Amino acid sequence: MKELFACADQYVQESDWKDLALIKFCLCSIGVMIGLAIPKERKKLPLLLAAAVFVVTYIPLMMKLIKIIIQRREQA
Rank of each mutant, 00 (worst) to 15 (best):
A50F: 00
K24D: 12
T57I: 05
L48D: 11
P60N: 12
V32S: 00
G35F: 08
C28R: 04
P60K: 10
F54Q: 09
G35D: 02
S29Y: 12
L48H: 02
A37N: 07
L65F: 14
K18A: 14
D16G: 14
L45E: 03
I66F: 14
S29V: 06
V53K: 03
K40R: 15
C7L: 11
A8Y: 10
E14S: 04
A52R: 06
Y11R: 06
V56Y: 09
A51H: 08
Q13V: 12
I34T: 06
P60H: 09
V12N: 03
L61V: 11
P46S: 04
D19T: 01
M63G: 08
L27P: 01
F54V: 06
L65C: 10
C7S: 08
G35R: 01
L61S: 13
M62N: 13
L49A: 12
L27V: 03
Y58S: 11
V53G: 02
E14W: 04
I59T: 08
F25G: 07
I23V: 11
L20N: 03
A21C: 06
G35H: 04
L20E: 05
I30K: 00
C7H: 08
I23R: 02
K24C: 13
I38F: 04
S15P: 05
K24I: 14
C7A: 07
K24L: 14
Y58G: 01
Y58C: 13
L49R: 00
E14R: 05
K44F: 08
G35Q: 00
A51K: 05
C26M: 08
M33L: 07
V53W: 02
I66Q: 12
K44H: 10
E41G: 01
L48G: 06
L47I: 14
L45N: 13
E41S: 04
L22N: 06
D19H: 07
Y11G: 00
V12T: 08
K40E: 15
C7Y: 05
V55C: 11
T57Q: 09
Q13M: 12
L36Y: 06
A52C: 13
L49D: 10
P39V: 00
M33R: 03
T57C: 07
L49P: 09
D19V: 00
A8C: 05
V55Y: 04
L22W: 05
Y58L: 15
V55A: 14
E14H: 02
S15H: 02
D19A: 01
I30Y: 05
V55F: 10
K67R: 12
A51G: 13
Q13N: 13
A51I: 12
I34S: 03
K18P: 11
A52Q: 09
Q13H: 10
K40P: 07
V53F: 09
G35P: 01
M33N: 00
K67A: 13
E41A: 01
P60W: 05
K64C: 12
F25T: 07
I34G: 02
K40M: 10
P39G: 01
W17N: 10
W17Y: 15
R42K: 15
L22F: 06
A51Y: 11
L27F: 00
L45I: 15
I59V: 15
